[in-house]
């Protein structure tokens, strides 16, 4: 079911509709990185082997850095003096603009890798285009992030192919992970009103076009991994306009607790 596309929870800025569109686009970019980094952070010390523990933490560190860049820029654009930290720690669930994909919980490392892979592949396609954004701020951040994400996508692709093909058990785990998270895929490349406005302004590329490339690459990789693309899954949308699953509230409660208990303190 597609939720209403109107988005009333956004803070509107004084500078008119173009600024609102840019602000919203930046929150979406930043929140995806933030929520995924938060999920990655809890694996540190618990991953299946040491090399993997270290490698995943590197991905997390890149994503935290990208979060800082996107959200700092968002704060500047908004013009109300909010920093990246203010935006990360003092917004509530409905104000978060991340896609549903990144907020999905992973009880199993197969889910972690599959979620990461789907995100990386899409993220890489998006960032490549963002390097040509009409907005120079977006261009600059994308140019730095795209190198990091090229590596993320490379690594998670390698893992998905190997684990999908690997043992019976690893194959089953990866197929289960794919099946259970598939409902989040379409949202990544389905533009809503805000996306379309940003595309019209040249800030964002056409998400539909990106979707075609992304889904093509995805099918190829899944085939190499002996994994079957799920069919007949009811796709869900809504994360990027603030309609999240229940899990996000817990994730934010944990992430924001210290700032909320001691508002205004320096850390």
């Amino acid at each position: 079911m597609r939720p209403s596309q109107t988005d009333n929870t956004l803070t509107t800025s004084a500078d008119g509709p173009d600024t609102d569109v840019l602000f919203c686009a930046l929150l979406r970019l930043g929140d995806n990185c933030l929520i995924l980094a938060q999920q990655i952070g809890k694996w540190c010390g618990h991953a299946p082997d040491l090399e993997e523990d270290i490698a995943l933490a590197n991905v997390g560190l890149d994503l935290i850095g990208q979060t800082q860049m996107w959200l700092n820029y968002a704060g500047e654009v908004e013009g109300k003096g909010r920093s990246a930290d203010d935006l990360a720690f003092f917004r509530d669930t409905r104000e978060f603009r991340n896609a549903l994909l990144v907020e999905q919980r992973d009880e199993d490392y197969g889910g972690t890798i599959m979620r990461q892979f789907l995100f990386d592949l899409w993220h890489f396609n998006l960032l490549q285009h963002l390097c040509q954004s009409s907005d120079s701020g977006i261009q600059e951040i994308a140019a730095k992030a795209v190198k990091e994400v090229a590596y993320h996508a490379d690594r998670s692709t390698d893992l998905v192919i190997r684990l999908g093909d690997g043992s019976d058990e690893s194959h089953r785990k990866m197929q289960d992970a794919l099946d259970s998270i598939w409902f989040c895929v379409e949202e990544l490349h389905s533009p809503d009103r805000m996306d379309e406005a940003a595309t019209d302004l040249g800030m964002l590329p056409d998400l539909v076009k990106i979707g075609v490339d992304f889904r093509g690459q995805l099918s190829n990789i899944l085939a190499k991994a002996n994994l079957t693309e799920p069919s007949d899954v009811a796709m869900r949308h809504g994360g990027k306009s603030g309609l999240h699953g229940e899990g996000l509230g817990y994730l934010l409660a944990e992430m924001q607790s210290l700032q909320r208990i001691h508002p205004g303190a320096q850390w």
């Binding site: 082997d49 090399e51 270290i54 490698a55 590197n58 490379d154 690594r155 390698d158 190997r162």
Partner: peptide
Amino acid sequence: SLHAPDAELAIKNARDVYTR
């Protein structure tokens, strides 16, 4: 040194472990 299942992942692991 490090452990890796194959050559490609050995390079990737080396990148993550030894060039941070």
